[in-house]
Amino acid sequence: MPIQFILTLISGIFIGGVGGYLGTLMLSKKMSVVAGPLAHLALPGVALALIFGFSISLGAFPFVILGAILIWILEKKTKLPMENLAAIIFASGVGTALLILPIGKAEEALVGNITKITPQETLITVLLGLLVFYIIGRIYKKMMLMNIYEDVAVVEGVNTSLYNLLYLLIIAIVVALGVYLVGGLITAALIAVPAASAKNISKGLSGYKLAAVIFGAISAAGGIVIAKFVELPTGPLVIVFGAILFLISVVFHKKAY
């Protein structure tokens, strides 16, 4: 097996797995609408990276972090509904990207270029993946309680403002990594789809988390392997493969209680 394929597979599995794990926290409506616009906000960064020839995650990351902090501040200040803020940020991100993106490079920005990942980038992806896994594990219970009822979380001693910020930063890292795998347009699916499939088949929390990580990793690996044999871009194949797993999970969906 060529080394490039192995690197692609390793980073894909890490990004898919961590995306699935993060997705399990996106249960409330408020949270699930954040990942999409953040990913689109990555697009201008990706465009800049392609123009100046540096790594697209490196380009995406500052934009996504900035977007995360912007959403955090805007929500605190304006009290506008998250959906509203999301729409504004989504449009600005895509709009800016379309202004500066060289048309010849559009495909790479929109659907990713994981098959060109370098050994250094793979290493960074693996390390960041592990870090995010660790942080999500640490904040998981508290985030879940906040999702269910924020006031109760506050009374239980959770610093909700800090946790919201941490959470947005994690989304930013995962989105920046996701841009590698599937591009800036459909990154949100990387986070949303595996968790949805996992939710269909799990009764309790631990099974749900585990299933989402596995679904995420399998989607990534499946898409990458299929792309090796057919002449189609990897990113969209990863998402479509994940969507097929989702359909299968619907069939196996039982009332687990």
Partner: peptide, 21 residues
Amino acid sequence: LNQLRVKNLPLTVSDFFGLKN
């Protein structure tokens, strides 16, 4: 805070107690 808040969440009663500090 009623059962509708956690409806359809993969969260058992045991998990719910696990959310405590």
